[in-house]
Design a binder for these strands. Sequence first.
DNA 1: TCTGGGGTCCTAGGACCC
DNA 2: TCTGGGGTCCTAGGACCC
Length: 431
Amino acid sequence: MHLDLDAFFASVEQRDKPSLRGKPVVVGGVGGRGVVSTASYEARRYGVRSAMSTREARARCPHAAFLNPRFHAYRETSQRVMEVLRDVSPLVEPLSLDEAFVDLAASGLTSYDDAAVRGLAEEVRARVVDVTGGLTASVGIGTSKFIAKVASDLDKPDGLVVVGAGTELDLLRPMHVTVIPGVGPATAERLRRAGITTVADLENVSEDELLRILGRAHGHGLFLLARAQDDRPVEPERETKSVSVEGTYDTDLTDRRLMEGLVSRQATHVSERLRTNGLSGRTVTLKVRLHDFTTLSRSTTLNAPTDSGPTIARLARGLLGELDLTGGVRLLGVGVSGLADWIQDDLFGEQHPAEDDDPVEELPDLPDLRIWVPGMDVVHEELGRGWVWGAGRGIVTVRFETSETKPGPVRSLPADDPALAPWRPVTTGGP
DNA sequence: TCTGGGGTCCTAGGACCC
DNA sequence: TCTGGGGTCCTAGGACCC
């Protein structure tokens, strides 16, 4: 099942402010360079669409209410909906605040029986209206993620479509290639030049030909989806891969000192979000969009992960210094990727005094039980300070520091090597 | 004053290692 | 005395999604 909340941000605004009900509402950036996130159906009648510039939306529908997003309200409402879905099945994969897949095979449902499936879906839709204070959802049900997602789009808003098993290709064949997730304007144009516009066209192309046109991963994926072959599982817990903050400024920036200050603030924000989520990462990326919309990125990778605001800020400012910014900058952004789910503990800190008192008599020597966590600090008589790079099977691999970003020498030591002995294990949320 | 912000995934080339 | 074949990691950019 795929569930999609109708005009989500705008609907929440109409729910919370009754005077907006039945009227055109546009949620998005209201500044000079803002774009539309969501338009209510009333506003869509005037041609206002997601991703349209707010400037154009104002021209098309001047009497609409233009609102900045209130994410806390959307998050809170979204959580209520996700709870309803998790009551149906433990396998719920949120795609965003307003969308999720639910694996009905992991629910109470025992067969893909039309009446039973519809009954369940209508129950979910009613409960969503209930817990959200009146928001409607469009639901699609199919034998795969792909089909369910296509189905949820067929009868918006407030719709329910069940695609019968075995009828998938009848549905897909006449449709434009852009119904396939991953086929956007660039891919559609490539396909069009090869004479391919519908799913039926796509189905008649050999895999080799598709690989030639689109490359390995994309070509293979499309070959399968064009045949309605999709066995991707519903994944309830996907790990965060990166955290970033960016901003577009109403007028182009030209002052480097100002830009450095803005980048530093963004780095602080990224650091706060990393810490809130117990994350740290090794790669710091600076993103810059120039006055002419060309977009640059520069990144640097540390030897050890960080969640430190000053560190991220210093590296990001350094990357900014490498760029020619003549002509002005419209966007700056800072991100951290290469995330680890552990944080580099400060093992040099005061909270870990030398052992001395409190020896454990019964368990005098347990090198095998020592837990070496990747990222923890160690020290070696000759090589100096380093980090645990990998650990397992009684061997600890340590990378020693020569500079912050240049990898130093790597040494593997037995887990009970005296050179490692002074350092205490850390406990983490890991396995 | 055309063109957001938060993400994911893929590709291609070069460095580096065995 | 003219040069391998993996493999991984890093960087930069691009397509795409909501």
